[in-house]
Write a protein that binds this DNA or RNA. Sequence first.
DNA 1: TCTGGGGTCCTAGGACCC
DNA 2: TCTGGGGTCCTAGGACCC
Length: 443
Amino acid sequence: MRRTTPQEITCPPEALNGCFALVDCNNFYASCERVFNPRLQGRPIVVLSNNDGCIVARSNEAKALGIGMGKPFFQCRDVIGKHRVHVFSSNYALYGSMSERVMATLAQFTPEMEIYSFDESFLYLSGCDHLSEYNDLTEYARTIRTTVMRWTGIPVSIGVARTKTLAKIANRLAKKSAGAKGVFNLIDSPYIDQVLEQVRVFDIWGIGKQNGKKLREKGVLNAKQLRDIDDNLIRKQMGVVGLRLVYELRGISCLSLETRPPPRKGIISSRSFGRKIESLEELKEAVTAYVTNAAAKLREQNLAARLLTVFLTTNPYSKSDGQYSNSIVVRLPAATNNTAELIHRAMRGVERIYKKSFRYKKAGVMLDELIPADQIQGTLFDYSNVERDKKLMETFDEVNTTMGSGTLKYATQGSTQPWSGRCKNRSPRYTTSWKELVNVAAN
DNA sequence: TCTGGGGTCCTAGGACCC
DNA sequence: TCTGGGGTCCTAGGACCC
């Protein structure tokens, strides 16, 4: 996303005719479940996180019961049982495809759209100037809303405003106020002051716990007060991020629309274990799975990583267990997206940070310093110990390895100087199969 | 040997988002 | 007993160089 620099902020741009609509799916995961089971209409629903640990989505009915976002499931068991709340484990494949359908529908309404998350999209409504009559825009938003409902079954709310931050606020009001019926338009609103006055500082996009607290101490309690704050004060308090936010509240757009997603800067794969794990072997097994997953994402996006981080931790909530967490950063000799090599590196990492007699609850891997895969500069492995490593290699079939210029490019297991040489054998053709490469190398 | 300013690069950690 | 996962951006401070 192109961001306005502090210098630019002090001399606001002339043209301020931006017009953003934020479309946000209502209780997205819960709504998805409902699409496939209409009998759940009007009934309380919650959707749980991985391992059924936390509550990550609630229908309005569940919210009304006081079930909080992110609350541990076991703490809500009583309410859930008492009110017969329907409970779902999360089904990301389902939500993913529903998300695609919603986004495809929205794309019909504008050529300029930024998919902000699974369930949210910013639409830039060009031609806003001749749509600037309040009724026009509001009606347009209503059309969008009913179309998404009809085509996908997912209810959405829409906020319309001059800046993204104000569109967020408008969206919130579209959800909260009963009279809005899912659409709230703040463009040229004569009631903007009254509206902003009702928005608590904590509820503003970009203000979290820490900054909300700081602002409250300064007597800034609502969005109107924040909008009218002194530039220098907010700059000191929250840096350029805060300054941008305040300008956005004033209707001066500092956050532009991002129609194409920028390339990933890092890829993480991590998981809490269903139970506590003690042995190094089990830990390695888990990390192997995470690396495999992360490397697949890497190749999907045609990227390669130069840095790999492995981390592990015990259960921070446990009072009785000893606590330990650690991480290790491994700089790869050359960028790679090769599963076997990444696993090899990660395993060495795990071995180094593993400590006996702790009970581990979570581990993960992070791939960093990503570059386009075609820029991989092929320093090659010496594959000197095929037999010993064959077993492990065979478990990975989907590896992005090729034979180029008569030379095999692949990762070795356990060579002391892994980048010093190359395999002499040649594969008869280009291949992406580890098994094949291993066989060639072994002969 | 003393003094100083300005610049870049890197890293860790904080804060926020969905 | 049981507490999610995956991201981004910004800042301060240290190391190093001219």
